[in-house]
Amino acid sequence: MVQILVDNNIIEAENGANLLQTCLENGIYIPNLCYLNDSQEPFAACRLCFVEIDGHPVAACTQKVSEGLQVQTDTSAVRSLQKTAFRLLLSVHEIKCKECSANKRCDLQRIAKFLKVGLKPKGLEIRLKDPGLDSGHPYLIVDQNRCVLCGKCVQVCLQKHGHSYLTFAKRGFDTVISGYIEPDDIPLTFSGCTLCIDICPVMAISLKEGIKS
């Protein structure tokens, strides 16, 4: 065990443990969307879990705990980076909270509250995808305008099945989570695995009607 200093609190942790996970487990909240517990290779895509170490911003999910590490999670530089990243995420997110199945269970709402950022980002152009609903998958529907591209669904699928049946397709603003059709003679049937649906922080993936979990 080693001791680290997070915002003047002494925390004991395993040497080499993940900093983000250590902070979260000790009740210090750092906004995050893409981190999966005990992930060996953190995806580090959402750019929300910034902390300050030795005056430099570091994504906490990519940092390992070592003796005497001094971390600050609440500096103005850190908050500014987080707010910008978060506002950019919201600029491609369809804000329809009242109609949304994730309402009140949504990580975006939680982070917005924590960072004190409105859900409608001012000064940024809203860029939504058309069409937003993708029903190309045999049994999943992905709401591309709700999806924050955190990649958790791709990661859990990969961990569970060795291959991911969901993937990132295209590039840049056009990037989507996609499940391309499988070879005809090996039809992709619903096995009852709903890992991707359960892990989604914004409930962007759902089962098609008539398919029961």
């Binding site: 291959h163 049946y165 993937t167 996609s178 391309y180």
Partner: peptide, 18 residues
């Protein structure tokens, strides 16, 4: 291609669209 390489079609599609 997916069938030949024994990987999901989604993986081939993801790479190709990039």
């Amino acid at each position: 291609v997916a069938k030949y390489l024994e990987i999901p079609g989604s993986e081939v599609y993801g790479v190709a669209t990039f």
